[in-house]
């Protein structure tokens, strides 16, 4: 039986831009790659009346989320001609202006990288049990809804 490789997806707190730069740099030895596509989700300071979102606090159903990420990964490799892909999602508090999601796909040609990246982001928003609680400047909070 093929062994299931576990890919660590969750990161405590925001995704550091240096981490993203390093993730890109790590691909320089894979010289058959012709295109990378990166999606970065950033926490936005939505305004409601006089208040604005200062952070999002992420929680998950960890075991199920890991399984879903694995399924999304397998499906992406089935449907697109990818050389590699990486998903990182924050847990815990991420301030407005910081990065909470990185989807990084690499392929020989750009169409596969771009289309896979978009499909993966849509699946993450729809299928992965993660919840964001928006924290406001007045310390109120509300559960985020995805569009």
């Amino acid at each position: 039986m093929k062994q299931k490789k576990i890919h660590k997806v969750f990161i405590d707190g925001p995704i550091n831009p240096d981490f993203i730069a390093e993730a890109i740099a790590k691909h320089s030895d894979k010289k058959n790659i012709g295109a990378h596509s990166l999606f970065l989700g950033q926490v936005r300071n939505d305004k409601i009346g006089d208040d604005e979102v200062t952070a999002i606090e992420y929680t998950s159903y960890h075991e199920m989320a890991e399984e879903k990420f694995h399924e999304i990964r397998e499906d992406a490799f089935t449907h697109f001609s990818l050389i590699c892909m990486h998903i990182y999602h924050s847990l815990g508090k991420v301030n407005a202006g910081e990065i909470s999601l990185l989807v990084f796909t690499s392929a020989i040609h750009r169409a596969d990288a771009i289309d896979a990246c978009e499909a993966i982001v849509e699946r993450i928003k729809k299928d992965v049990p993660v919840w964001g609680k928006e924290i406001f400047s007045n310390e109120n909070s509300q559960w985020k809804t995805n569009n």
């Binding site: 998950s60 999602h89 993450i124 993660v130 559960w143």
Partner: peptide, 10 residues
């Protein structure tokens, strides 16, 4: 059994 409100990751 998990009771799951609408997801809002990303």
């Amino acid at each position: 059994v998990a009771i799951l409100p609408p997801f809002s990751g990303g």
